[in-house]
């Protein structure tokens, strides 16, 4: 790690720890194994979104050329969002690409990700399936996203989830054992059991 990068990261740690967001438990930042090149971030799903109350862990890799190149960030917690891959957690966000500026910090990144969770940009999608659902079936999108938040991010449960769990159980009884694939199949097929089954068949 270059000198500039190390000084910067250390400084940013102090900055994040002192920030109001940390006091309000909105964001968190800690190193992976005492190493400043690999960090773990955490953001809380913002209010009035399907992600409300969910805890989302992020994998942050600091490049050698930081801060002249952006950090590499992806979601470790699975999330249903048009700009985040439901499979890999890869994020499509301009400031993590060509709109990055060296004066930006990890705090900026975490807050921008929280903002992204509040305001998706379906016209610049990372996950085409999610983006299509977002546009064509906004209701299904919202309930699917909060179901994922409940299953993967410890967000609170609601009434709608009973129906979804019922369908998951039916798929399981048909012999589809992998839970994540069942959730993905049903979510991708707007919770149509028949279509999800066909999706799962090789």
């Amino acid at each position: 790690m270059s000198n500039i990068a190390l000084t910067r990261i250390q400084r940013e740690f102090k900055e994040v720890i002192k920030s109001d967001e940390v006091k309000n438990c909105q964001i968190k930042l800690e190193p992976f194994e005492d190493n400043f090149t690999h960090l773990k971030g955490e953001i809380i799903g913002p209010p009035d979104t399907p992600y409300q109350g969910g805890k989302y862990t992020l994998d942050i890799v600091i490049p050698e050329t930081y801060p002249f190149n952006p950090p590499k960030v992806k979601f470790l917690t699975k999330i249903w969002h048009p700009n985040i891959s439901s499979q890999t957690g890869a994020i499509c966000l301009d400031i993590l690409k060509d709109q990055w500026a060296a004066a930006m910090t990890l705090r900026t990144v975490l807050l921008s990700l929280q903002a992204l969770m509040s305001a998706a940009e379906p016209d610049d999608p990372q996950d085409a399936v999610v983006a299509t659902q977002f546009k064509q079936h906004p209701e299904i999108f919202r309930s699917t996203a909060s179901f994922w938040a409940y299953v993967y991010a410890e967000a609170p449960r609601n009434e709608k989830m009973k129906e979804y769990e019922e369908k998951l159980k039916q798929l399981q009884e048909m012999g589809f054992h992998e839970k994540n694939s069942r959730i993905t199949a049903l979510s991708s097929k707007n919770w149509d059991l028949q279509a999800a089954m066909e999706f799962l068949l090789p």
Partner: peptide, 15 residues
């Protein structure tokens, strides 16, 4: 009026 040091500008340009 964004101001930065010469070293940083140079690194930025290099990247």
């Amino acid at each position: 009026r964004h101001r930065f040091c010469e070293t940083c500008w140079c690194q930025h340009f290099e990247v």
